[in-house]
């Protein structure tokens, strides 16, 4: 009997620690999953130039906060994206770093493209542009619900 009591005590402590550990591991797994969503997003958006990626990875009510623009909802987002997609050739996005905690992911990367002149009065046409991007994403259930983007 005197052996069963410490065994039960051990077992209870172990269960509590195990539950806490499981929860922390689940969060770690979620962060890795969120990072892979962001990688797919950049690849699909600029490296593969697939507009369908927006439906796949953005929520319907996605919010975008840029330097100069605010976008509200996926339909408006698609219009803005398609404008840039048709004005930029040879787009390439290189991820330098992904940092994730909880439902947030920050990506640092470089986007390069050749401007083909379809954005109005901006010159020079045919010049390769290379811009450093910092973007913070908020994800809900594996989809991007909000993004804050700044570039140099």
């Amino acid at each position: 009997m005197f052996l069963l009591i410490p065994m039960l005590m051990f077992s209870c402590q172990d269960k509590q620690a195990l539950t806490e550990l499981k929860s922390l591991k689940a969060q770690q797994a979620l962060e890795e999953q969120n990072k892979s969503v962001i990688k797919r997003y950049w690849d699909g958006k600029w490296n593969e130039r697939r507009p369908e990626i927006l439906d796949e990875l953005l929520t319907k009510n996605v919010l975008h906060h840029g330097s100069t623009d605010e976008i509200n909802g996926i339909e408006e987002y698609k219009k803005v994206y398609n404008t840039y997609l048709s004005a930029m050739d040879n787009t390439r996005f290189e991820i330098i770093e992904l940092i994730a905690e909880g439902n947030l992911v920050m990506s640092r990367g470089i986007c390069s493209a050749t401007y083909n002149g379809k954005l109005g009065d901006i010159y020079p046409v045919g010049k390769e542009i290379s811009v450093r991007f910092f973007t913070v994403f908020k994800l809900i259930d594996g989809k991007i619900a909000e993004e804050w983007e700044l570039f140099q």
Partner: peptide
């Protein structure tokens, strides 16, 4: 607005990255 990233080692900042809406 801006986004900034610190990297620490032994309680000291070793790298710092910043991007800001300077145009704004």
């Amino acid at each position: 607005k801006g986004i900034q990233v610190f990297q620490f080692a032994n309680n000291k900042v070793t790298n710092f990255w910043a991007v800001e809406d300077e145009l704004g």
